[in-house]
Write a protein that binds this DNA or RNA. Structure first.
Lengths: 336, 336
DNA sequence: ATGAAAGCGCTAACAG
DNA sequence: CTGTTAGCGCTTTCAT
């Protein structure tokens, strides 16, 4: 049926192992025979059978990408995930690897799927696209010494987890400093999620930035349910807030709407800056000034780092920081 | 290392083949021994090695999901894809299959990746998440008799392609009829894409619906670049348009913005209805009245249909239609 | 109803 | 530098 390593070997008049070695560019084969083998491969249209290779090498050449147990439609609609997945996939195909997805309706199901994928040897390890506290999936990976890398920063296992991430503290600081530079002195941090690690970090960056410059730092405000409306309005008025930092673009859109509902103008009365630079920031005017987290790069490097982990399981569990980029648009006014 | 079929066989005192047969619930094994084998599997924690299975059976138990060659950030941000992918993945895991992704920066790269995945036997076939004219990928699949099913409706190969889709003509008709029922008689179809099949179908549904009732049918309007602004404004004014059908939610958001820019109110002056019922329809007020295409169901059925194709390659290339659902929100006013 | 045995296509010692 | 060979774990005839 399809061309095998043996066919190629016969064609060239060498042993199958020689062909196999040529495939991996093994140093102990002479350039000359390698060349002859490669020619024959082309001629016969040889393509390695991954199943056979996997069985023999006990590797699957596949990486599992773990999505958060969705639940909320908000999460599933976040363009960030697909962007990162595409990036991982691109990079993976450059390394002759494929990516398989691990999803689940809830944590238990997700864990089950992850375990099965690994035990069936469908994947060599995983890249996690989320971080949460008390994550059984993460526990499993660490416990079983499954190779993995996280996009984000975990709550624990700081020395057992390799991760690729933005420096969210710096992100928070960058946003804050940008507003300060534009002449804002009463800056408020607004969010719809308090538990995510990236929120805590960004908020902390905000606090330190203001604190260091002896400017007024405000406790963050939550805007999630209708009951939060009044509190936020009061806060803005009483603290004479002139600028808000929103936890991400999608939320910023809602925040802007809230501001306008209260007869304030963006950016004339209140400026807004946010994170992610996703499609949401250029959906409607005023376009949102936002900090790009570089999702492509996150994906690419996550895969490369994962490959490192795979090569030597004992390799250092480093933490790779991806730079960001502030995109100026229409939601911040300058007082200088 | 890990438990194999042999270990189980030894434990029970049967031949490996008996264990293998139990795994597939082969009829020629007595229920009694099957039971004993299953017990032993549980006891030893046996998990089949897919690589071995794949090699022996020449099947990979994996399906490739082909994403459109992205290019535009708009496409990559469309939440529809991730929703469908998740749904496919869910269904796949219920059938002991995994999904691998096929992506590419452009058509050529995508084709290359698809071919490689298939020739390396990483996947048994594909599910396509897009449709385009003159698609080399589709040509390849049909030409090489690779099993596949399309989510959407292809331009050609009507008898060689199994597909799962909404009936976009009915969708267009549903939107139109809804507006008519609410007392609108001058309805305009607005889009930012003219080439996609789903646009053509929805627009055709719109035309037929109005035509059959002897109401005024208008040529569709395009709103893509700044140069389209004036034309659209004139059209609305001169044709006394009271309602617009937008090609999807994301676009509807932009359309609404355009309308408001011209000092019209939604829905007081102009009503809007759109398709997809994605996150974009409930992002900002007025929330958009939209037709849900049921992406979960699309994904689930696509996988099931793909499995059919896999079982018997010669099976009928049917076309499965997924029902839709109109979600009433805040962008359509009733004159009745 | 069950067992024996021959592969599936490739890798990786071990020889030479 | 290259060949020989013994598997990797499972499926699947062919016997019994």
């Amino acid at each position: 049926m399809s061309v095998t390593i043996k066919d190629v070997a016969r064609e060239v008049g060498v042993a199958p192992s020689t062909v196999s070695r040529t495939l991996k560019d093994h140093p102990s084969i002479s350039e000359e025979t390698k060349e002859r083998v490669r020619k024959a491969m082309d001629k016969l249209g040889y393509v390695p059978n991954v199943a056979a290779r996997n069985l023999a090498s006990n590797l699957s050449n596949a990486v599992g990408v773990i999505l958060p147990a969705l639940g909320t439609k908000d999460k599933e609609s976040n363009p960030f995930y697909l962007e990162v997945i595409s990036a991982i996939n691109e990079e993976a195909s450059h390394h002759q690897m494929t990516v398989s997805l691990a999803t689940g309706e809830n944590q238990e199901e997700l864990l089950k799927n992850v375990q099965l994928m690994y035990r069936q040897k469908r994947v060599d390890g995983f890249i996690l696209l989320y971080v949460r506290e008390d994550d059984q999936v993460l526990d499993y990976l660490v416990d079983q010494r499954v190779p993995f890398t996280i996009i984000g920063q975990p709550y624990k296992y700081h020395n057992e987890a390799s991760c690729v991430d933005n420096d969210n503290q710096i992100l928070g600081r960058t946003a804050t400093q940008y507003l300060i530079d534009k002449g804002h002195s009463n800056v408020l941090f607004v969010t719809n999620t308090e538990n995510e690690n990236f929120f805590k970090e960004r908020y902390f960056g905000y606090r330190r930035c203001l604190g260091e410059q002896n400017l007024k730092v405000l406790d963050y405000s939550v805007l999630k349910e209708a009951s939060d409306f009044l509190a936020l309005k009061d806060k803005i008025t009483s603290s004479q807030v002139s600028a808000c930092i929103a936890i991400d673009d999608m939320f910023a859109l809602r925040l802007i709407q809230f501001i306008q509902l209260n007869d304030w103008l963006v950016p004339d009365d209140i400026s807004v800056i946010s994170f992610n630079n996703s499609i949401f920031s250029t959906l409607i005017h005023p376009y949102i000034t936002s900090i790009d987290v570089n999702s492509k790069e996150l994906g690419h490097l996550a895969l490369q780092e994962f490959l490192e982990q795979l090569k030597k399981t004992d390799s250092v569990k480093k933490r790779i920081i991806i730079p960001h980029r502030l995109i100026e648009r229409e939601t911040v006014i300058s007082y200088k």
